[in-house]
């Protein structure tokens, strides 16, 4: 039988959720509502006049091959960022978990990059890979590889993926590390006595036990790669070369704040909102079934 704790009456529960509801209303529902409303207009930049155009902003966007290409770019970018920020984080967490001596120091050092703002991280990586003075590009040059992310689309994508994932590894590490600590030692010891080696124990016992954390991080990282990577892309490539690193959120920025086309920009925010919402729902619907709490 379910054990349920319920409030008597409505006043207290409403009061308790009021702060969160207020924050959601002010920082989410109001701006999101504004975006939906504005997406139906073509306004001038200064807000002096605007014309109602119905869904024209949407048909204009979906008919634009460059906008559709941004979907593909975003899919590749998000997939790579999620992968590159979660796999190394898990590996590092497992390794740090095995440490007996100096675990605290390693942990602290591994968490540091998270304190660096994305735009700053972007500048750091840009500097290291600078085609003229960059340390990494110099070494690559010594190895006979001519690094030029200014013109090479693949290299540009690689660079923004690395720069976006780097700080994120720390965040993921923190969660994986905490989750690993919660894995009962007795289960692992039993498996060890049965003769299972480390990696076998890891794949058959630890990984399934980590699934709630992995799932949570998957959702959070996909959302991160969709939105918060803006600063990295803005500082490193500005969406180029050509359109190689123009992800959806960057296009929202460039149409809205470079082109001052607020109608199109709002329409793109709405589309982006729907895409991320749908993606999250799908994740919960299909992946969560495989998660054991």
């Amino acid at each position: 039988m379910d054990k349920r704790v319920t409030f008597k009456g409505w006043a207290l529960p409403l009061l308790l959720i009021a702060p969160q509801a207020a924050i959601s209303a002010v920082f989410f529902f109001y701006p999101a509502g504004q975006a939906v409303w504005q997406s139906l207009f073509i306004p001038d930049p200064f807000g002096l006049s605007s014309q109602f155009v119905g869904l024209e902003n949407f048909t204009y966007l979906l008919g634009d091959p460059y906008y559709r290409a941004a979907f593909a770019t975003t899919a590749v970018f998000s997939g790579l960022v999620t992968l590159c920020s979660m796999v190394p984080a898990l590996f590092l967490a497992v390794m740090a978990d095995r440490l007996v001596k100096g675990a605290g120091t390693y942990r602290t050092l591994l968490i540091w990059p998270y304190a660096v703002a994305p735009a700053v991280a972007g500048v750091l990586w840009l500097f290291m890979f600078n085609t003229r003075v960059g340390v990494v590009s110099w070494y690559l040059g010594q190895l006979g590889y001519d690094w030029n992310h200014v013109l090479n689309q693949g290299e540009a994508m690689g660079l923004v993926v690395i720069a976006s994932s780097w700080g994120r590894i720390s965040y993921n590490f923190l969660f994986f590390f905490a989750a690993l600590q919660a894995v009962p030692k007795s289960v692992i010891e039993a498996a060890a006595i049965d003769g299972a080696r480390f990696w076998r124990r890891f794949f058959t016992i630890v990984l399934p036990l980590l699934s709630p954390t992995t799932f949570f991080l998957l959702v959070v990282n996909v959302v991160y790669s969709f939105f918060e990577t803006f600063g990295v892309i803005h500082t490193i490539t500005g969406g180029g070369p050509q359109q190689a690193t123009t992800i959806l959120v960057y296009k929202v920025f460039s149409d809205g704040f470079v082109g001052q086309d607020l109608g199109s920009s709002s329409a793109q925010s709405v589309i982006l909102l729907l895409v991320v919402g749908a993606l999250t729902v799908l994740q919960f619907k299909f992946l969560e079934k495989r998660v054991h709490y």
Binding site: L151, G239, G240, P241, S254, D255, V258, G259, Q260
Partner: peptide
Amino acid sequence: SFDQIRGIIDEELE
């Protein structure tokens, strides 16, 4: 929209 048109020109020149 000339700032953005320059962006398009940059992309095409690249």
